[in-house]
């Protein structure tokens, strides 16, 4: 059985000019795999991630035929039950650590708080666990980092701390929203290895939201390509470079390439018809 099963997900925001649908009828399943969602900013990929955790605030609305986590309907859970899901069953690593870490709380305290909230462990055990997690995300001098504030950290360290914090509860599903776009390549490799290991060894399901096509093609198992709130194409990640949809092709061609230099880069021309296409199903 799949970990997550989403059917016909819609996210709607009322605006002065009528309703705006950020996500329009997206369906997919997630097993113990690395599922990539790619698209440009505004394509609805982050909104899809947030909608799964029911993090869309009113007046925004999340609707779906169903959205099941291991058979349990997420849309019918009370807010209290959702608290047991968020951070424990499904964790989310957001784009920018600057806005995700509490600026006036020491890093150690933030990790310990999450761990104790979800497991009820003692302070000492939680401290040891937090240090262990920081080590797992390749942070040196963990004891010092535990006592530091977020502003004392670089962006890369902040993001690794976020990941450590999200993985400390050993969630079933990790939604990673551009987890490495603020990171350097060598740190990026380490972070990806950590997530890769969790998928392979612990059977975690990973939703990897990214705009980086090369990264998704090489890292994920399956890819959903989103445009204007819909899935326009799905494929095996290693076949991404053979994708058919003109939007996907346009994105691929607009990347500068080291192996194929060209004077000018192709610029994506958007076909208004893409807006009207129905969403492709990402179910397996």
């Amino acid at each position: 059985m799949s970990l997550l099963d989403v059917e016909n997900l819609c996210v709607t925001f009322p605006t002065r000019r009528g309703e705006f649908q950020a996500v329009r009828g997206v369906s997919f399943t997630l097993g113990q795999e690395r599922l990539g969602i790619v698209g440009e900013s505004g394509s609805g990929k982050s909104m899809t991630g947030r909608a799964i955790l029911r993090l869309i605030r009113p007046p925004g609305r999340v609707e779906a035929d169903h959205m099941r986590l291991e058979g349990r309907e997420l849309l019918q859970m009370s807010e209290k039950e959702m608290q047991g899901v968020r951070g424990q069953k499904i964790s989310m690593v957001m784009q920018d650590p600057k806005f995700s870490l509490n600026p006036v709380m020491k890093i150690g305290e933030q990790i310990i708080e999450i761990y104790r909230f979800h497991t009820g462990a003692g302070r000492k055990a939680a401290w040891a666990k937090a240090v262990e997690m920081l080590e797992a995300v390749s942070i040196r001098d963990q004891e010092r980092v535990m006592r530091a504030y977020p502003h004392e950290m670089s962006g890369g360290m902040g993001q690794r701390i976020m990941i450590a914090m999200m993985l400390v509860t050993e969630p079933k599903i990790l939604i990673a929203d551009e987890p490495t776009s603020a990171l350097d390549v060598s740190v990026q490799t380490q972070v990806l290895q950590i997530m890769d290991r969790l998928v392979r060894e612990r059977g975690m399901g990973l939703i990897f939201i990214s705009h980086d096509l090369n990264l998704v093609a090489s890292f994920c198992d399956r890819v959903l390509i989103m445009y204007a709130g819909r899935i326009v194409e799905t494929c095996e990640a290693d076949k991404l470079h053979e994708a058919q949809h003109p939007y996907t092709r346009g994105l691929l061609n607009s990347l500068p390439r080291l192996d194929e230099p060209s004077e000018r880069l192709d610029v994506l021309t958007r076909d208004p018809a893409w807006m009207e296409e129905t969403s492709v199903s990402g179910r397996v």
Partner: peptide, 14 residues
């Protein structure tokens, strides 16, 4: 910037 927009800006700079 998004990759498609990046392509436009890089072309402009060239």
């Amino acid at each position: 910037l998004d990759v498609s927009v990046q392509a436009e800006v890089l072309n402009l700079l060239v």
